[in-house]
Design a protein around this nucleic acid. Structure first.
Lengths: 100, 100
DNA sequence: ACAAACCGGTCTGCACCACAAACCATTTCA
DNA sequence: TGAAATGGTTTGTGGTGCAGACCGGTTTGT
């Protein structure tokens, strides 16, 4: 016995990341500080989640400067958008799976 | 810093359990064997997930006999139905949360 | 009578991971 | 020359999803 073809992308399924992705999908790009206050999570948390999304290729990390202060921006990749769409599709399938 | 008022019920959010709940929400009751084949998970897994749902008060466990063979049935509780409805509501809120 | 298969689980071990807090490098303020 | 703020990264740990071994009982096959 094996295989769990859930289809539900675990990277996206995590509530914190799901929220993060939804925010990103509505703006062109967002920086760390903005996301921090928009999502109300700790810095470490945000950092690691964003990292996970980057590794999955769902968000692009743009490190730069604002004057002399470091500033990191994030934006959704095309791959990310597709994955999100697919995620909602899968979820809808489950949702409408009432009884057998 | 603290608080994660996600609202998303983790007991329900887990894909395996979500699927399980959706199956149950479509039938009056289902037994172990049926769920096993309907969901394609291992016995241990199904057992523990169902257990978790029972502890949360979302499903009711009905142990009985079919002749001399044990037969365990599961059915959604009212509390379970409400929790599911609330879950979908929360999820819809997140879904429509595009950019602030 | 004995073995094998089925039913409904429990228990064990592992691998992963979300989370908060500690930490670090700069920069600004006094 | 600090002290505190800014912008993150790294670390420690508890929680848990998962498969598979095991188990008591029943039924079926030979």
């Amino acid at each position: 016995m094996s295989e769990t073809p859930t289809g539900l992308d675990r990277v996206i399924h995590e509530p914190a990341r799901l929220r993060l992705l939804m925010v990103l999908s509505g703006v062109d790009e967002a920086d760390f500080k903005f996301l921090l206050s928009a999502l109300g999570m700790t810095k470490g948390n945000l950092s690691s989640h964003v990292d996970r999304l980057a590794q999955a290729g769902y968000v692009q990390v743009l490190k730069g400067f604002n004057g002399k202060v470091t500033r990191t921006c994030y934006r959704l990749t095309e791959r990310g958008r597709e994955a999100i769409a697919e995620y909602w599709r899968e979820l809808d399938a489950i949702r409408s799976m009432r009884g057998k």
